[in-house]
Design a protein around this nucleic acid. Structure first.
Lengths: 215, 215
DNA sequence: GACCATTGGTCAGTAATTGACCATTGTCCA
DNA sequence: TGGACAATGGTCAATTACTGACCAATGGTC
């Protein structure tokens, strides 16, 4: 409760106000279409003040990305739980993954761009690396879930892990892409979730039935 | 959500932080024993800043008094309700009155001082006047309640209103004085409330029974 | 390829905050 | 009694935070 402490706290608050304003704008309009002036306005500050807290527009952007990637990892970290079937785990992964990117369209767009090598935006090396890592994280987790399923006998032992993993990853991201940037806001969450849920269920059923022998 | 508006809001917040800190200190220690430096510390500001928002220590004090007197009037304003016996009204007045001053000992002390002409503290004329007015307010309300009670037949018509009114006022403030500045904090509220409640009930019973004929 | 609009970034000017300092007052002790 | 001293209300020059007019670079248009 000191005086120095109060000033530090207020600085932190200012910075957060800018980040909050910027996040919303970036995620609504994308990096290029947001002006620093508009961020300042939304944060109820002057443009000059924004530059007291961040050294560039890009700096704001990368700090948001870093913090969101961090959140992403936290969300993904505890997906795999004891005593839950791999199918159920995959389903909860799909739901969490969808929910996360529903609230962070910009990050999704960026990850997709990286995946597709469209546009590396000239972000610092370090950020590049982290984004790639975050992108791969989901793939790794899906593979891990499949391995657990095979080990427990839930899935046949002869499946091609890589293939299944990629199919699921594609299903997830393809569906999200399709819905996230098209159509109206209304009931978007429901549409994505139900599409993914039925798709995933169908796929898993296919894996377990003898006719669809996992190949 | 403009920029000018934000600054205005923040000024208001600063001022309120000072008032909040000062109120607590004044009510704990009394005007004389509080230093401006201590107010500043508690509000996490420098002494200089306090003087940006208030022109003197006394100014802080009177602003708190004014705002508290205002609150007091708001609390007292709606005591009298249709369809409630005068006894019940008196009881709720007693409870509200007690609760109010439990949280504002300093104001109580000041009002008592004024009543007893002990110390007028050199507050501006205007404040003096308001404090006297607030003090008298309670007396007037008690009298009004008695009059309603007489009119409705709840109390005998021959009672001396002034006498009864003064007795109740004395009971209230005497009890609060006794408890508010002595003994331990623990269960103080309960002690005051129960003392006043039984005292008031006894008094009212006395007024209604033929033997205690209201004189 | 000249003009213009837009916008990222700068910086001199302004506002808010600080705390060392001063003047006054009350206290204590010789 | 009076003077040394501590405590504290109030001031103000120095520091820190914030602002917005301005500049330079960029991209679009005719």
């Amino acid at each position: 409760m000191g005086l120095e402490e109060r000033r530090k706290r207020e600085k932190e608050n200012r910075k957060n106000a800018i980040l909050k304003a910027a996040r919303k704008l970036f995620f609504d309009k994308g990096f290029k279409n947001v002006t620093v002036e508009s961020i300042a306005k939304k944060a109820e500050l002057s443009k000059g003040s924004v530059y007291l807290y961040f050294k560039s527009k890009e700096d704001i952007y990368t700090q948001i990305l870093l913090s969101d990637i961090d959140k992403f990892h936290k969300v993904m970290a505890n997906i795999i739980r004891e005593g839950q079937s791999s199918s159920a785990t995959l389903m909860s992964l799909a739901n969490l993954y969808t929910d996360f990117f529903m609230n962070d369209r910009e990050l999704f767009r960026i990850m997709m761009n990286y995946m597709l090598n469209i546009d590396h935006m000239n972000l610092p090396e370090e950020i590049d690396h982290l984004i790639v890592k975050a992108t791969n994280k989901t793939i790794d987790i899906i593979e891990e879930i499949f391995m657990i399923g095979v080990r427990s006998g839930e899935f046949p032992p002869y499946i091609d892990l890589r293939q299944k993993r990629n199919a699921i990853w594609g299903l997830l991201n393809g569906t999200i892409s399709l819905h996230l940037f098209t159509g109206s806001e209304e009931k978007r969450a429901e549409r994505i979730r139900s599409t993914i849920q039925t798709g995933l269920n169908t796929f898993l059923r296919g894996m377990r039935t003898p006719s669809g022998n996992g190949q």
